[in-house]
Design a protein around this nucleic acid. Sequence first.
DNA 1: CTGAAAGCGCTTACAG
DNA 2: CTGAAAGCGCTTACAG
Lengths: 345, 345
Amino acid sequence: MVDSRGRTQRVTIADIASRAGVTSSAVSLAVNGKPGVSDATRDRVLQIARELAWRPNHAARTLRGVSTHAVGLALTRPERVIEQEAFFARFITGAQAALSRQHFSLQLQMAPDLASESTIHAEWVAANSVDGIIVLDPRSHDPRVEQLERLGHPAVIVGGEWNSATIASIRPDDAEFMRTILRHLTSLGHRRIGYVTGEQSFLHIRTRIDAFNGFMVDAGVWGAVLAGNFTPERAVDATDRLMASPSRPTAVVYDSELMAIAGMGALSTAGLGVPSDVSVVSWEDSLVCQVLRPSLTTLDRDAVSLGKRSAAALLSLIGGEPVDQPTTTASVIHRDSTAAVSDAP
Amino acid sequence: MVDSRGRTQRVTIADIASRAGVTSSAVSLAVNGKPGVSDATRDRVLQIARELAWRPNHAARTLRGVSTHAVGLALTRPERVIEQEAFFARFITGAQAALSRQHFSLQLQMAPDLASESTIHAEWVAANSVDGIIVLDPRSHDPRVEQLERLGHPAVIVGGEWNSATIASIRPDDAEFMRTILRHLTSLGHRRIGYVTGEQSFLHIRTRIDAFNGFMVDAGVWGAVLAGNFTPERAVDATDRLMASPSRPTAVVYDSELMAIAGMGALSTAGLGVPSDVSVVSWEDSLVCQVLRPSLTTLDRDAVSLGKRSAAALLSLIGGEPVDQPTTTASVIHRDSTAAVSDAP
DNA sequence: CTGAAAGCGCTTACAG
DNA sequence: CTGAAAGCGCTTACAG
């Protein structure tokens, strides 16, 4: 609406009501599809609402305590860790897909650190502006989770291990996934395996490390874990160090695609062929892994489906339904970067 | 706060007021750092607010017409176009960096299509829930832009060409950037150049195509444009077709990193070496381009800085300041995927 | 410096 | 089926 001075005015249900000759209560019932108004009135109101290009004011609805049909995700992402961007973009693509099917929207907000993330959560809960919250990359004794538990607001912890009336965890079986990768490699004859990790403060990375070490012991295979942090620089350093070892590994597992690509670069610089000298596995799959030459053997887990499952669990929690916890499986996509170990070095 | 039945109650300024023995008006002034209350009162109020873990209710503030210090970005992203994910994650990383410096937050919302994007914009404006809006991937005669112009809400169009009192465009000089790439290639002796494009309905892609064709004519060089859509499949097909040409190009430009990587795969499959037989340039730079072997020659434009500039422009617009339109430059990062053309084919 | 009141746009009991 | 009123939590004139 434009007033006499040409300024844009907000269109409210009161405007519609006065044009339609009814009260704003009737308009509210009409536009929300609730019973209590005659069909004739409803049609007239909807027609006028359309003419005036009326839009519901979310703030007013929220204040009134109505469900917002929104889910919140606050994200702490240090700018330097570019690898996580791919994960994060794919994750929210999946989450969005699951949410939009039930007409929920995804509210995303960036935070500089974990404490700010908690502040954002608290404000969302105080303002009733999201029906549920998704938490990524939980730490052990995560303050965000403790606060959400206290607030009693529905939340899903991706990669966590908390479960209560209001909190559910989506926990990919990282230990089993690691063993799946290692079985793939040992079945190809590899007996010396390196593992270059992501950020070790993440719970799921520690789970993978434990599983790696356990497998090495049980299978009597030589293994080495080098701590990375998702950056290519660290991946290159770790790869060089592994290759300098007197018992040089014939296969290396990387926690991310970017680290795996960087590692392959380091191997190529060192004059080592993939897979002729060293086999390479990336934990995370993506289109780049597929189109690369040599194409990368990966675990067929992708962030898109993780996002879908997390959102679906949160919607169950919000709806008061039991959370479906499907056991997740993952298999190795055998591409060109892994091959049978060549004869004695 | 927990009531007698153990349920969590929302803490409001009224709760603080009653504990502090003042009115809610005084609390409002105190927590917002406005004059009108004594220092003693302010301290007492802030102390109590902290004790009760009070959080401002955004919906109430918004409804009251107060600036939300938020910027909105509604995003239409077909799930299939994975390439755009990298762009988009980097873009919002940059935007977020610029915004948080001025304590603005970024509201992100996914939309299934352009019409829904417009609906979201309209609701944001109606509800006063963002101070400004960022629009990505404008089309010619873009309905989103026309609506924002009508609504008179501050907006920045990334890659657009609209400019008015409330709308600014961040327009990288795609034509000049294309010429920069082509000058790099011709200086290396290339006289037959292929170009595999992204989605042609995007304005900036069409600008690049025009510049490519113009350069070919002016320089008397043989050029071929093949329409892609950012997918690796189309990039592979286009590359194969270029290589089958009787006047096979010695260099190919790709509109994205993913397409360039896919193209290099196709070249390798065809038994062609990079850069020995064919030089390859990617329009967009990233860490993957850098760690890849051979590393990819790229235009040193990255989505992070584009996000920063877009957000900065929007903040200027919101603040009523003139929008700073720095002329953007870009240069070619010469890596291993381009080299001087080898002697006669 | 402080208090009482109005109102942002909407929904929801409660009467008629 | 419709109308009048209260109230969500907050801010901002306006009085004292």
